[in-house]
C-alpha cells in the first residue's frame, strides 16, 4: 500500500461513530494518506481479557491481524481507542508468548497461522509524525475556539501500549495548537469516563461526566476534543443528566473544520446529542 493506510474500523465506527469515520477519512485523504478499509475484519471485543488462561478472547483481534497478514500488509491503523488497545495488547501477547501464539494458531485451525508480523497503530500516532502536512492543510484556523482535550484510558494505559506519557500526554494538545485552537489545560483529561457502565449503571457514568465536563467548563472550554467513540458517547449523551451543553468533538472533526472541509454537511457532526452548530455559528465557522 503506497501512501494509503490499512484501516480497521471496528463495529461502532459503522454506526454510532460514523462521524468519526467520515471525518477521519476526509482528513487523511487531504493529508495524502487515505484510509483503506481492510477486506475482512472482526469485532475486537472492546475490552481486553485480563485472565492469564483466557486465550479464547484473544482470538478475535488475532483473527483481524491475520486478515491484514493475508492482505500482504504489515501495519493496521485504528481510529477507536478501545479497538486500538485490544488489538495492540493481543498482538503483544501473541508476539511475546510463543506458547500462547501456538495455542491461538491451533485454535484458528483451518485458517492460516498468524506469524506475528503485523504492527498496530492508533491514528494519532500517524498524525503525530505529520505536523508539517497538518500545518500546511489548515485553511481556517480555529483561533476562536477554546478546546479541552480529553484522552480517557485506552490510549494511555497500561503503559506497555501507551501512545504517549501516561500521566502527562501532549499529543492532542500539540495537534490542537497546529489547528490554531486555544488549548484548555484539563486535569481530568486522563480520568475514566465510566466506560461500559453506560449499559447498566448510567448513574456512575453521569457522575463521571459531571466531573469531567464540569471541570472543562470551569476552565473556560467551549468544547471537548477526543477520539474514543465510547468516551464521546458518554460525555455527549450523559450530559443530559447535567446542566452542561458542551459539544464533544472527535479531533478529526475539528481537523476537517480547520482544513476547510465541508464539515457538518457531507462529513461528520451528524450524530452529536449536544448540537455543535450553535457554537460553530457563533464563532463564525458555519453559516
Amino acid at each position: 500500500m503506497e501512501d494509503g493506510l490499512l484501516y480497521y474500523p471496528g463495529c461502532t465506527l459503522k454506526t454510532k461513530a460514523s462521524d468519526y469515520e467520515e471525518s477521519a477519512k476526509a482528513v487523511m485523504e487531504k493529508l495524502g494518506r487515505p484510509l483503506v478499509e481492510m477486506d475482512d475484519w472482526y469485532c475486537c471485543g472492546a475490552v481486553q481479557s485480563l485472565s492469564t488462561d483466557d486465550i479464547m478472547h484473544q482470538i478475535a483481534p488475532i483473527r483481524t491481524l491475520c486478515c491484514a497478514q493475508e492482505q500482504g500488509e504489515t501495519e493496521v491503523v485504528t481510529l477507536c481507542d478501545m479497538c486500538f488497545n485490544v488489538l495492540r495488547r493481543a498482538n503483544t501477547r501473541a508476539k511475546e508468548n510463543e506458547d500462547d501464539l501456538e495455542t491461538m494458531n491451533e485454535f484458528l485451525d483451518e485458517d492460516p497461522d498468524y506469524e506475528g508480523n503485523v504492527e498496530t497503530y492508533h491514528l494519532f500516532e500517524i498524525l503525530r509524525d505529520m505536523k508539517d502536512e497538518i500545518e500546511k492543510a489548515v485553511k481556517r484556523p480555529l483561533d476562536d475556539l477554546k478546546i479541552a482535550p480529553y484522552y480517557g484510558c485506552m490510549l494511555l494505559r497500561p503503559s506497555e501500549v501507551a501512545i504517549d506519557d501516561t500521566e502527562d500526554p501532549q499529543i492532542m494538545e500539540d495537534m490542537l495548537e497546529l489547528l490554531g485552537a486555544e488549548v484548555i489545560e484539563n486535569p481530568k483529561r486522563t480520568e475514566c469516563c465510566g466506560s461500559y457502565h453506560t449499559v447498566n449503571r448510567s448513574d456512575i457514568v453521569e457522575k463521571r461526566v459531571e466531573d469531567i465536563v464540569g471541570r472543562a467548563v470551569e476552565d473556560g472550554a467551549d468544547a471537548i476534543a477526543l477520539s474514543c467513540p465510547l468516551c464521546q458517547f458518554n460525555l455527549d449523551y450523559h450530559q443530559r443528566a447535567t446542566e452542561f451543553e458542551v459539544p464533544v468533538f472527535y479531533l478529526t472533526e475539528l481537523m476537517a473544520l480547520a482544513f476547510g472541509l465541508d464539515i457538518g454537511k457531507e462529513i461528520g457532526m451528524k450524530k452529536h446529542r449536544v448540537e455543535p452548530n450553535a457554537l460553530l455559528k457563533e464563532k463564525g465557522y458555519m453559516e
Binding site: 461502532t12 469485532c43 472492546a46 478501545m82 467513540p229
Partner: peptide
C-alpha cells in the same frame, strides 16, 4: 433487560457483556 439498547454504541454493549 438492558434498556436503551438502540441508543448504545456497540462497543459499550460488547465491553459490558465481556466483563459481566
Amino acid at each position: 433487560e438492558v434498556e436503551n439498547l438502540q441508543d448504545l454504541p456497540q462497543l459499550a454493549v460488547v465491553g459490558c457483556f465481556r466483563k459481566e
